[in-house]
Computed example of a mutant assay.
Amino acid sequence: MKTLLHKADTRGHADHGWLKSYHTFSFANYYNPERMHFGVLRVLNDDSVAPGMGFGKHPHDNMEIISIPLYGDLEHQDSMGNKTVIKEGDIQSMTAGTGVFHSEYNKNKDKEVKFLQIWILPKKRNVTPSYDQITLSLEDRHNTLQQIVSPDKDDSGVTINQDAWFHLSNLDSGKSLDYTLKGENTGVYAFVLKGDVSINGVALSTRDGLGISETDSLKIEAGTDAEFLLMEVPMQLPSING
């Protein structure tokens, strides 16, 4: 088993006034050659956007983009004609493929919005752009693993163009869960949203991240009430011609 520990206070940080962002991996003006990716997981940004502010229309291509709202309401518009609002309990994914423009704004004028934005390198390049959004019950992740992302449109969660599976869980203090990896040559990057957990014997606290590879299963134990995200992704980078 290989592990890669990223403590919360070692992340990159950007404060633009209207936007406060923590970067687990190199992004924008934060560059760390030892933090370029974990397998095909390229970006894990922990963002807070001030009331009424946001990201104007900008392009993406050949990237799988997953947004997970944690607090508040985030308004999304894109060149595919989608105009939606996502909030806690919603999961959004966008396959940028051959190219798409989108914008993201805090819909509210009186409170900030907090969300995770995650970028995954795609399995196949230059596919037709697509959009997916679902609303999930928070109760369905209490002391269990709730799948929120998968590669199969007939499976639970939003669908992306990559052999990746994401799960969220709210685990009570003293409870434990087991996770068996689904893919071949995959690893799991765990991100703790709050609380204290131990994963395969490695202690983690709020906003810590842990990459685990070369194992078939995880043992997750909660030292306090805890909330965490598991991202199982291929460890081999896709061919640029894929």
Rank of each mutant, 00 (worst) to 15 (best):
K153R: 12
V43P: 07
G97Y: 02
D110C: 09
G17Q: 11
N143H: 05
S150A: 11
S176M: 08
Q117S: 09
I120M: 08
S213G: 11
Y30L: 08
I240A: 14
T95Y: 02
N200F: 06
E221W: 06
T98S: 13
F191G: 04
D47S: 02
Q117K: 09
K124Y: 14
S198P: 11
N143P: 08
G17L: 11
G211I: 02
N143F: 01
D208N: 00
E112G: 12
R35D: 12
G54D: 08
M235Y: 00
F191M: 01
E184G: 10
H37C: 12
G195E: 04
D78G: 06
K219H: 15
G54V: 05
L136C: 10
E214Q: 10
L230E: 01
I91L: 07
D154N: 15
G12D: 12
V127I: 12
Q92W: 10
L145M: 03
H60Y: 12
I120G: 09
Q133N: 13
K83F: 07
E139R: 13
I134M: 13
P51Y: 05
A50V: 09
D110I: 10
L168V: 13
A50H: 05
D15G: 01
T215S: 13
I160W: 09
D90E: 02
M53G: 06
N161R: 05
D9Y: 13
Y30H: 04
F228D: 02
E112R: 12
T206D: 09
A8C: 11
V43A: 11
K153G: 02
I118N: 01
N82M: 08
S150M: 08
N143I: 03
S176C: 04
P234T: 08
F115L: 14
S198I: 13
V43G: 01
Q92T: 00
H102Q: 04
M53S: 13
K83E: 14
D78L: 05
T10S: 14
L116A: 04
D73S: 15
S21N: 07
K20L: 13
G195K: 06
H142K: 15
S130D: 12
G201Q: 07
P33Y: 03
V100F: 04
Y105C: 10
E227V: 04
R125E: 11
H58L: 03
F115G: 01
P151E: 00
S205H: 12
L168M: 15
G242T: 15
S67P: 06
V149Q: 07
E221V: 14
K114T: 03
S156N: 14
N62C: 04
H16Q: 13
H23P: 06
G209W: 00
M53W: 01
L121F: 14
I91W: 06
R11C: 09
N241G: 07
G81L: 02
